[in-house]
């Protein structure tokens, strides 16, 4: 564990907490993509199956349980408890266009052709693009509430911090996982446009509004 990775994990955790608080306090999931949340739940479930086969550390197991349970809780809030506020019409991204290529890619490019390893690889690929339905929703409505922007910023920062962690681990431990590094870079690049808008608008107290 190094500082970059810890900061990345905490940023990831913060994103999820921000999201849950936003939904709970406003009693609404307006402006949020349920499809992205379904993809994230799929990511955590397929990646953390090793929870039952491999013990790494208490921290590791604890975080995995938190990520799986909070993502399921988010889906419950969006699709059941606060369903009436869910912006279904704008959340029209076709997630099969993301899931199917990720399935194929994970079957073709993986480091070991075993069930757990292919599912892990699938989750890495899927995570890199799982935010697209949310970004699509923001681009369709043309704006995002500031709390949603904070959520996106924390979520995007997590993988960017992991890139620093991978650079550190490569030099300090000689450890690297090419699949995770490649997908993590793709993931971070997808947030770049948003990061720019966040810094130039949201941090200056303005609402995140896309140029017309």
């Amino acid at each position: 564990m190094n500082l970059f990775r810890l900061a990345g994990d905490l940023s990831h955790l913060l994103a999820i907490i921000i999201l849950l608080i936003k939904i709970w306090k406003t009693r609404s999931c307006a402006g949020l993509s349920g499809k992205s949340q379904i993809l994230f739940a799929l990511v955590y479930i397929t990646r953390y199956l090793d929870l039952v086969t491999t013990y790494i550390s208490l921290y590791n197991s604890f975080m995995k349980v938190i990520f799986i349970s909070t993502s399921l809780a988010t889906i419950y809030l969006m699709y059941s408890k606060f369903r009436a506020t869910y912006d279904k019409n704008h959340d029209s991204f076709r997630i099969e266009f993301l899931i199917i290529p990720c399935v194929i890619l994970s079957l073709v490019i993986n480091s070991n052709f075993t069930v757990l390893e292919v599912l892990w690889t699938f989750s890495i690929y899927l995570e890199s693009v799982a935010i697209l339905p949310q970004l699509f929703l923001v681009s369709k409505t043309g704006e995002a509430e500031s709390i949603t922007s904070h959520y996106l910023f924390a979520l995007g920062s997590y993988r960017a911090l992991y890139i620093l962690n991978w650079i550190y681990r490569y030099y300090a431990e000689g450890h690297y996982e090419l699949i995770a590094i490649f997908a993590g870079c793709v993931q971070t690049i997808l947030y770049c446009d948003f990061f720019y808008l966040y810094v130039t608008k949201v941090l200056k107290g303005k609402k995140l509004q896309l140029p017309a």
């Binding site: 090793d50 590791n60 996982e177």
Partner: peptide, 10 residues
Amino acid sequence: ESTGEQHDEL
């Protein structure tokens, strides 16, 4: 080195 089966990151 890539560890293959064991992934220690989240």
